[in-house]
């Protein structure tokens, strides 16, 4: 019988495959970071360790412009989409279904169902016409497009949080004759805030990640980090590009760690 005391948790081979999986995931990124410290310009020709390509990146105006564009775009789009998604989530959860709720649901999730390239092409056709007619070529188009495809990403976690929330506190507040707005501000919103935060983070990262839609829609001078990187990748793959990629990698590590710490505190 002793032999039979097998632990189902130890699925044979799972650990080996899992470790392989982590190695596969991390080795390419590790090599990318490694070569970003190459003193030589050509990737792969190791000419000693150096931080010079990070220095070059920091003084590269095109990169800085792209980083600023990305930051403005991701911040604006994720703030607006989180705001709109929170309103929509408050309207579509914790109640009897109302007329049209199903339709709203499908619409809010629609951007998830369309391949990025299709959405990009579709937007190019329409935005091209609008730009021609109005003469406006500002960042507004990118912000609007990013807001649209970020809404479902912000909406899902907020809705999930709302659905898991306990109604009794709000009812208690209402029983104590608190105004509807007061209840919302002092009870609902604080309870909802972790959902809003993760919705916002997700929207921010999704916007920051977008290459295809930005690349098709951008007007001159509106390169974002991914479109700038793509341009350089096609023309000029140097150690500096690996340094910039490593900085982006560092950024995502920081974001993940940040959200980790934030949720930990809330618990």
């Amino acid at each position: 019988m002793a032999n039979r005391s097998f632990d189902v948790r130890k699925l044979p081979g799972a650990a080996a495959i899992a470790i392989t999986c982590f190695v596969i995931l991390y080795i390419p990124m590790a090599i990318l970071v490694f070569y970003s410290f190459n003193a030589g310009k050509v990737i792969g020709n190791w000419e000693g360790a150096s931080l010079k390509w990070y220095g070059a990146a920091i003084h590269n105006q095109a990169f800085l412009d792209a980083a600023l564009n990305s930051l403005i775009l991701a911040t604006t789009a994720s703030v607006i989409s989180t705001l709109l998604a929170t309103m929509a989530a408050l309207a579509t959860t914790r109640n009897e279904r109302f007329r049209g709720e199903g339709v709203i649901h499908i619409i809010l999730n629609q951007p998830l169902m369309v391949p990025e390239i299709v959405l990009a092409i579709a937007l190019v056709i329409i935005v091209g016409q609008i730009k021609q007619v109005t003469g406006y070529t500002g960042l507004g188009f990118l912000i609007a497009a990013h807001t649209a495809f970020c809404i479902p990403f912000a909406y899902l976690p907020i809705r999930a949080r709302l659905e898991g929330m306990d109604l009794s506190l709000e009812t208690a507040a209402a029983d104590l004759y608190a105004s509807r707005f007061y209840t919302f501000r002092r009870v609902t919103l604080p309870l909802l805030s972790p959902g809003i935060l993760s919705g916002f983070m997700l929207a921010f990262v999704i916007s920051l990640d977008d290459l295809v839609i930005s690349d098709f829609l951008k007007s001159p001078g509106q390169d974002t980090l991914p479109t700038y990187l793509m341009g350089e990748l096609k023309r000029n793959l140097t150690s500096e590009i690996y340094a910039i990629s490593s900085l982006l990698l560092l950024l995502s590590v920081l974001i993940v760690a940040g959200s980790w710490v934030a949720t930990r505190k809330k618990d």
């Binding site: 056709i125 091209g128 730009k131 023309r235």
Partner: peptide, 19 residues
């Protein structure tokens, strides 16, 4: 802003709103 070929540049210009 950079392009790959005369043909794709022309297509982009034809599409309008290029800036």
């Amino acid at each position: 802003t950079e392009y790959d070929s005369n043909e794709s540049a022309l297509a982009k210009i034809q599409a309008g709103g290029h800036g």
